[in-house]
Amino acid sequence: MGLSIPVGMAEVKASKTADDSLSALGLGSCIGVCVYDPRARVAGLAHVMLPDSAVIRATDRVVEGKFADTAVPALVQRVESLGARRADLRAAIAGGAQVFSFATSSPALAIGSRNAEAVVAALKTAGIPLLAQDCGGTVGRTVTLDVASGLVRVRVVGGEPVDLYRLG
């Protein structure tokens, strides 16, 4: 068994160590964005919190991994630095649930669905095919990406991990 590398909120991590897996725990409205290069066997995972970096102010510290539009380019850069080729990358995503059903239906609080839309758009902009997704619903998920095989697994509360897609 290799390492299970935790990818916390707003983090972007990559690995090409065959024994590793990357894992994002407790994804509610957050999205776990998995990218994989099956030829170079390089894997990357971003734990995206919010859709759009336009909300940050000039004085704020920039956390690339926090927003869909900045996390995807940062993720691509990270896997490229480990030898992945952009043209070979493929993606799978999971998360974007609405865990708290807000009584006030403010669009600002429909974060899960807005996150999913923004991640899909950012992957399209980056030219990375999205091969599988498990988004929406009302429960939290844990997403794991296996470096050796590119296998993406999703687990929900109280359940067993389920294979979502093999990116490798």
């Binding site: 909120m9 725990l25 407790g26 994804l27 509610g28 409205s29 957050c30 865990v99 708290f100 059903s101 009302t138 429960v139 939290g140 844990t142 509360v157």
Partner: peptide
């Protein structure tokens, strides 16, 4: 909401 601590803290 009822969920894991990780998910609730994240939300």
């Amino acid at each position: 909401a009822v969920d894991t601590l990780a998910t609730i803290l994240s939300e």
